[in-house]
């Protein structure tokens, strides 16, 4: 009996010790979107990365934040003063000076859950993308608009129409694609492309489609919103 008592006390001590030892988990959410004119940009999944830096902790290392297909991001953090940066060469856009300074670093004073929209200027946008299905051929009509037209303007390398089984649709994740090289894009409005749906195994009666634009000299593509299409 005594042994049992001791055992209970000992077990109690262990429990207490456990809860005292552990750190609290991060609990504050920093959410946001990459936007142009209030509209989020459509990007490739997990390809555009941002970095959060929190100075003052001795050795510095960034917290990576990746941006979703719909241009949103979210990160679970501790309260603190962070610097949010988009590293050079990331994203199909140019960053803007933030908070009245000449730098594009965004200072985030995180005390509570926070939502921020980061305004950037994309080189191009894919607009008015409409998708249609005709006997297993997905066709799309869309416009391109060139947003940056000054000295920083870039050419179109190619336009691609992608379809996939799942809602992750991009160059690396697709079941079929057609490409239109930039040299063949003469008119930026009313561009038409189509792609055949291949046999899908196991069978399903829908695909996800979107149009992507590759800008020459820029690594990441910009896309139209994703659309689910019933094709049979």
């Amino acid at each position: 009996m005594k042994i049992l008592k001791y055992f209970v006390v000992l077990a109690g001590l262990l429990l207490v010790a456990c809860s005292k030892d552990n750190y609290v988990a991060p609990s504050i959410t920093l959410k946001g979107r990459i936007v142009y004119g209030g509209e989020p940009l459509n990007l490739e999944y997990s390809q555009v990365g941002m970095q959060l830096w929190e100075p003052g902790w001795g050795k510095l290392a960034p917290i990576d934040v990746t941006v979703s297909q719909e241009g949103t991001f979210s990160s679970l953090l501790f309260a603190g003063k962070y610097k949010l940066i988009i590293p050079k060469g990331q994203g199909p856009f140019m960053t803007k000076a933030q908070q009245g300074s000449s730098s594009d670093t965004l200072y985030v004073d995180l005390k509570d859950n926070q939502n921020i929209d980061i305004e950037v200027t994309p080189y191009y946008l894919v607009r008015n993308a409409k998708f249609a299905n005709e006997a297993g051929v997905i066709s799309s009509t869309f416009d391109l608009s060139k947003v940056i037209t000054d000295a920083n303007a870039k050419n179109i390398e190619r336009v691609s129409l992608y379809i996939n089984k799942t809602q992750f649709v991009a160059g690396s994740t697709n079941i079929a694609a057609t490409n239109l090289s930039g040299a063949n894009v003469t008119n930026l409005t009313g561009i038409k492309m189509s792609v055949n749906v291949p046999t899908i195994n196991p069978d399903q009666n829908y695909v996800y489609a979107r149009v992507g634009l590759k800008i020459s000299g820029v690594e990441d593509m910009i896309f139209s919103p994703i659309q689910k299409i019933q094709y049979k």
């Binding site: 510095l60 290392a61 050079k88």
Partner: peptide, 16 residues
């Protein structure tokens, strides 16, 4: 990052 923390004179490689 440990190398750069120890020696801030080291610049990062591009596009990372």
């Amino acid at each position: 990052d440990d190398i750069i923390s120890n020696n801030p004179k080291i610049v990062r490689n591009p596009n990372q």
